[in-house]
Amino acid sequence: MTDMPKLSAIERTEQRSFLLLFLPALILVALIIFAPLGKLVVQSFQDEGAFSLVHYKRIVTERIYWSIFVDTLEVSLAVTALSALLGYPVAYAAARASRLWTGLILAMVMLPFWTSVLVRTYGWLVILQRRGIVNTTLMDLGIISKPLELSHNYTAVLIGMVHVMVPFIVFPLYAALSKIPPELAQAGNSLGGTRSYVFRRVILPLSAPGLLAGAVLVFVLSLGFYLTPELLGGGKTIMVSSLVERNIEQYSRFGAASSVALSLLVIVLAIFWVVDRVLPVEKIIGVK
């Protein structure tokens, strides 16, 4: 990469043919990703056939709009923090356990990972709803007399999203942690460090890139997440994604939907742009 040869004639032809191999993929991306993005840009700056900034103004001025952006950021941050909290011990145990246990732990992370988000959300509905498992069990045990509101609220959305996101943290973290030789911790202990000291000063810094990769991925995925908030949120518009969907499907307000979608995209790209300085985007994406 660093040293670009001045190419000879045959190599130039060959290099060009390699670029050509890339072309079909580029065409697909241009048609399916960039054409729609272009369409969104056009729509977002248009009102009744004329150029207008009204759709962007709405996001800033109307409380409903910007508060949904704030809520989305909040939910995404919470989901990221919780996923990291739950994912870390799992990745750590998988990296330190014997081969058999590592396999079992990773399999139990893979199971939800490979299961459709819809299926998992359905599972949480069954568990959390008014006549769901938790409520009926608690009522059968006589702990409560009438069902708790567990689903169709913020908490349910959080639980459902964390459940989806934990594997995305576990995989890069596991990759980073399993590369740390166990002798390092032993050396740290032998030098007089307590377990928590060694963890904070040795293990955590060394696993930081994996944690960062997972956390960025989870945060960005959460920002645009649609299914779980929609189904577990009980019809309340909690996330930006629902705002986009509602403006299209219910109100046919394409301009409003476009401006909201593009604002979200700008936030996501800004995050990638910042993180790219520390950790190449390809590294973050490459985890799946």
């Binding site: 729609p36 649609y226 969907e245 979608a261 593009l262 979200l264 995209l265 996501v268 985007v281």
Partner: peptide, 16 residues
């Protein structure tokens, strides 16, 4: 560019 389908949130792609 080729990674954009995973970089751009799916809801945005779907809407566009």
């Amino acid at each position: 560019l080729l990674l954009s389908p995973v970089i751009v949130p799916v809801i945005i792609i779907a809407a566009g």
